[in-house]
Simulated assay, not measured.
Amino acid sequence: MGENLTLEGLRDLAEGAAVLGTGGGGDPYIGRLLVERQLRAGRQVTIIPVDELPDDALVLPSAMMGAPTVFVERPPSGQGNVAALRALEKHLGRTAAATMPIECGGLNSMMPLLLGAQLGLPVIDADGMGRAFPELQMETFAVYGVPGSPMSIASDHGDVAIIDARDDNVRMERLARVMTVEMGGAAYICDYPMDAATVRRTAVPGTLGLAERIGAALRQARARHDDPFEALTATLSGTIYSHGLVLFRGKVVDIDRRTVAGFARGQVTLASLDDPGDRMVITFQNEHLVARRDGEVVAIVPDLICTLNTDTGAPVTTEALAYGQRLTVYAISTPEIMRTPAALDCFGPAAFGLGEPYVPVERLAARSAAGT
């Protein structure tokens, strides 16, 4: 059965999705306010399991595209959301039965909720990344054979276009990235049109529901003055994200962040409060990609590397990182659907130009504990 999202549930979901967004996906606060406005106006957001839809129902995933830093400087209005979906419906000659996130992180967990409220469309409790990634071809949909094209792209200024790169999802990303830059660095998209049967086969299930539970666990831990990281680990236990662990606690002592070709790129350095010589460096491209402690890899994409406020457990996105922040670096293992050879070819370390191989975070932690 579907769930109508409450204001409290929305706030929990936004915070939990920012945790799963591993530093990226855009600022959830901006998107949350857009959805809150819809709920306060009497509209509803209904989140459903994909099993509620017939096999042939059309699903149009929706998102925003661009560098997260742009969304902070120029918050989206939410108007291009509807234009993008309507353009793709017109191109396909079909009407969408539902929308869903392409990624479960930050702002992009909110945009399908906004679209659902605006149009009365249900939102499927699943996504195509199980976290956030910076490029459109980095989807479980793509890994398991779904073309991203045709896709639609729209701006807040009324620009609308259709991109059809046929089966070439990498070219689709490149074309859309150029258009996003021309649209001011941020754009609304609908891509990977597919039927519900294909969503069931290719999506990471239950991520919106999990995000809401994570946000609720952190909120309740703060209210009880409990350890938020213990609450987060307990919430992840028994889910498809089975391993959660603290990697490092420290203070931000250096931040190098640039907006380049539509991405926020750079690295952040943290120093331990107990031993300033003990340092962790996290490299990011919109999202955190690899964490190295004293030069040794302790977590690497596609596993999740989360920067969380040490006192509250609140997620801190890449565009919000700042000198002097006291952060806890927390790692989460990805679901098995994201660890297959085909998945790693699409969004493993080599896809980002990293020279290190993928080693699951729980195995890296075991090696560290064993002193090897």
Rank of each mutant, 00 (worst) to 15 (best):
G105P: 13
L7T: 12
A343S: 15
Y323L: 15
T233I: 10
G148T: 04
L218G: 05
D167E: 12
T46I: 08
L247S: 02
R86M: 12
A126Q: 03
R222D: 02
P335R: 04
A41M: 03
P335W: 00
L119F: 10
L344Q: 08
T233C: 11
G148W: 04
D156G: 09
D156L: 11
T310D: 15
V82F: 02
P205S: 07
Y29W: 13
F352H: 13
D159A: 13
D195T: 08
I153P: 07
A126T: 03
P68W: 02
F352D: 02
L327H: 00
P54V: 12
D345T: 14
Q38T: 05
G324L: 04
D311R: 15
N286Y: 11
M1Q: 09
I163N: 07
E173T: 09
A370C: 03
I162C: 08
N4F: 11
A154P: 03
D278Y: 12
H225K: 13
T6G: 12
L289Y: 02
R279M: 11
M65H: 05
V290R: 10
G238T: 03
T312G: 04
V178F: 01
M65I: 12
M64A: 10
A96D: 11
T283G: 08
L53H: 05
I153T: 06
E212M: 15
Q325D: 00
G24H: 03
G355W: 00
I214E: 05
R43E: 10
A165S: 14
A203W: 00
T239V: 10
F284Y: 14
G42Y: 09
L115R: 04
D164N: 15
A187N: 02
A87I: 03
M65T: 04
G66W: 05
A231P: 11
A203D: 01
V204Q: 05
A217V: 02
S368T: 06
L58W: 13
D227Y: 08
S62I: 10
P150T: 08
G116M: 07
E73L: 13
D345S: 14
F352K: 04
A234D: 14
A351K: 09
V246M: 11
K90A: 15
T310M: 13
A87T: 12
V143Q: 02
P134N: 05
I214Q: 09
L232G: 01
D127A: 03
T180S: 09
Y144M: 04
N309S: 11
R166H: 13
R213F: 00
V260R: 12
P147N: 06
E230C: 01
A67H: 07
S152M: 03
L136M: 15
T328Y: 00
I305V: 14
L5T: 09
E89S: 06
D311Q: 13
A221R: 02
V35H: 11
M194Q: 15
G324D: 14
L121R: 07
V160Q: 04
V260Q: 13
A41T: 06
L175T: 10
Q79H: 12
D167K: 07
L208V: 04
Y188D: 10
L20M: 15
G120P: 08
L39I: 09
L39P: 10
A370F: 00
P28T: 00
I47V: 15
S237D: 15
L114M: 06
P193Y: 06
D303K: 06
S149D: 09
I48A: 07
P28V: 00
A117Q: 04
L34V: 12
R171F: 06
